Simulated assay, not measured.
Amino acid sequence: MERIPILRMGPTLLVTIQVDMQDQTAMTLQEDLAAKIADTGANGVMIDISALEIVDSFVGRMLSSISGIARILSADTVVVGMQPAVAITLVELGLSLTGVRTALNVERGMQLLDRIRQENALEP
């Protein structure tokens, strides 16, 4: 079984999905990411899906689930690099990815996470 690497960049975990996501790979990623957030105390997760050309409903739900798990563990999630065909497919499948923030690319994703951190720091 293939594992997707999770890299730490300061307070952010970066996941770059370079392979077609099979159901078991997606489940393993979800478990690995939850453990890594808990172990490192990361407060941001960025998932780069720019290499994915096809996303099925299971992977779409998994992205939403990862975001929910991360939120419970006090980390915000941003999905970056979504191809137009993937966005169209998700809409056609009726998946809105509630709670999942998106950005065009990694640079904008990092800016979004920085902005979220600043907003969270201002909250009483």
Rank of each mutant, 00 (worst) to 15 (best):
E53I: 00
Q83N: 08
V100M: 06
F58E: 08
Q18C: 02
L63R: 05
K36H: 10
S74G: 04
R8L: 08
Q111I: 00
R108Q: 11
Q24C: 03
G94D: 06
P11V: 01
L113K: 04
R3E: 15
I4E: 06
R8S: 13
A70S: 13
L113T: 06
L13P: 12
E31W: 05
A85Y: 04
T16I: 09
V45M: 05
L122K: 11
F58I: 11
A85E: 13
E2D: 12
R115M: 10
A34F: 06
I116P: 02
D32P: 11
G109C: 00
T89I: 15
D39I: 07
L7H: 07
G60T: 07
A34R: 15
L7N: 06
D114Y: 09
A26H: 09
D114M: 10
D23G: 02
L33P: 10
G99Y: 07
G81V: 00
I49S: 02
V86P: 02
T25G: 02
T25M: 13
R8H: 08
V78N: 03
V86L: 11
A35N: 14
M21V: 10
V91W: 07
V19K: 09
Q18D: 14
E123L: 14
T25V: 12
R108N: 14
R117Y: 03
E2N: 04
Q111T: 02
I88D: 12
A87V: 12
E31A: 15
I72E: 08
I88E: 11
I116Y: 02
I54V: 13
D114E: 15
A70H: 13
Q22H: 08
D32N: 10
V106I: 10
V79F: 01
V100C: 03
D48R: 00
A121Q: 14
T16S: 15
I88R: 15
D114I: 11
N105T: 00
T25P: 04
L113E: 02
R115I: 05
E53Q: 11
I47Q: 09
V15A: 03
T98L: 06
L122C: 07
L73M: 15
M62V: 11
A42S: 12
L90H: 09
M21D: 12
L29A: 03
I54K: 08
T40W: 03
G109K: 00
Q83K: 14
T89Y: 05
M46K: 01
L95D: 02
M62N: 14
A51R: 10
L63H: 07
E107W: 00
A34C: 08
K36S: 05
D56Y: 12
L113D: 01
D56H: 07
G99N: 14
S50M: 06
I49M: 05
M110W: 03
E123Y: 11
G44S: 03
M110I: 05
I66D: 05
Q118W: 12
T16N: 06
P84H: 13
I49L: 10
A42H: 04
R8Q: 15
R8M: 09
S67Q: 07
V79Q: 00
M1C: 08
E31T: 15
G99M: 11
R101I: 01
V106K: 01
V59I: 15
P5H: 09
R61K: 08
M62E: 05
D76P: 03
M9V: 05
R117M: 08
L112E: 00
D56M: 12
S74F: 13
I49A: 09
I37L: 14
G60K: 10
L97K: 12
T12Y: 01
G41R: 06
D56A: 04
M110S: 02
S74M: 08
M21H: 07
Q24N: 10
D32V: 02
L14S: 04
